[in-house]
């Protein structure tokens, strides 16, 4: 089979005449019984009237109920009374307008199906021809086809003029530079407990515990920069194990990054950057709540499961003269998610 353009057609035409006629209209009770019609009319009007009453109710609730008043609704817990009453009155008022209108349409407006013809969607042939002719005339009058130099210079100008608008975007942000490679940890930065800001001594940590920690002075830096950028990279977790539980860590030959069984790892998941603090003491597994990447802190922070591809970076730590835990240096590799230039 082929269509008008001689193309292959896999299908057969639908007939234009219906095989079966439209079934005759069946009158509703409201069409035949004036009482039913009056009843329907009453129902519709009642809904509209109730809606108006509820709108008045809304204003009562708006002025009478203080915004912070709560109610205890038994097993349903504590509710904002204002929200509840405003919502119920407003929602009811709106809903009743809708149900009233639909009821009106269904019961009282004509429900006789009407048949309309569809007309061909495209333009008629003579319109197409006329349009083409107009276009050709215009084209000839413009000289776009012949005046090569005008045409080419115009195209060139049009191609160039958007570029400044792209250039404007350049200052949306700074170049990355090496900023993803370092954090504010430095040799000798004290490690402090996250919320309290207390510096930590090794004896503050018992075997089996995990503590969220950050570099001392983080709050000041955050204040000064006006961003949380430093925090987003520098947060760490400290875990203490008995030294014989540690199968390996990331210390290179000749260095010791752990201190008496205390290990410091970045808190930022190497997958796409969620902070992690779910620790299973028995297995030494650290579990990311976002996509369940699991890292073995007793084994260099290696990935044991999940979509993360890299182990958690370890922060080399030791204690200072006063016996507080400090960093030996910054992280030796970027923390957080991988990026193209990371290598």
């Amino acid at each position: 089979m082929s269509d008008s353009q001689g193309k292959d057609l896999a299908t057969v035409e639908h007939g234009e005449a219906p095989l079966y006629p439209l079934p005759p209209h069946r009158p509703r009770t409201t069409d035949t019984d004036p009482r039913a019609a009056r009843r329907a009319q009453r129902q519709v009007a009642t809904q509209f009237a109730l809606s108006a009453v509820l709108t008045v109710g809304f204003f009562v609730a708006y002025w009478v109920v203080p915004v912070d008043q709560t109610v205890e609704l038994g097993p349903f817990g504590v509710w904002s009374l204002s929200n509840l009453l405003l919502g119920l009155t407003l929602g009811g008022a709106i809903l009743l307008i809708g149900t009233g209108a639909i009821h009106w349409a269904k019961k009282l407006m004509s429900d006789e199906e009407i048949v309309d013809e569809r007309h061909p969607l495209g333009s008629p042939e003579e319109d197409r021809a006329a349009a083409k002719e107009m276009f050709d005339t215009g084209l000839a009058e413009s000289g776009f086809a012949e005046r090569k130099i005008v045409r080419r210079s115009l195209i060139g100008a049009l191609l160039l003029f958007p570029l400044p608008f792209i250039a404007f975007l350049r200052d949306m942000g700074p170049m990355p530079g090496t900023s993803l490679r370092n954090t504010i940890w430095k040799k000798g930065t004290r490690i402090v407990v996250d919320v309290s800001g207390q510096p930590l001594r090794p004896e503050d940590l018992q075997v089996g515990t995990l503590v969220s920690a950050s570099p001392e002075g983080l709050d000041e830096i955050q204040e000064e920069e006006g961003t949380q950028n430093a925090r987003a990279k520098a947060s760490i977790i400290l875990v203490r194990m008995s030294p014989d539980e540690i199968r390996s860590d990331q210390s290179p030959e000749g260095e010791t990054w752990a201190y008496e069984g205390i290990l410091a790892y970045s808190k930022i998941c190497t997958h796409v950057g969620c902070p992690i603090a779910l620790y299973q003491r028995r297995t030494h597994h650290l579990l990311c709540p976002c996509h369940q990447s699991t890292f073995d802190l007793a084994d260099s922070g290696n990935v044991v499961f999940g979509p993360a591809a890299r182990r958690m970076p370890q922060l080399p730590i030791t204690v200072d003269d006063e016996g507080y835990l400090v960093a030996q240096s910054d992280f030796t590799q970027p923390v957080g998610p991988s990026f193209w230039e990371r290598g």
Partner: peptide, 29 residues
Amino acid sequence: GRTNTNVVGYPLFPVYVAKAGGFFFVVFG
């Protein structure tokens, strides 16, 4: 009664103004 070249149903005004307009209020409510 339905073919590829006709459309069978109810008129926009008043039936769908009421039904669709009403339905907006239902969804909102």
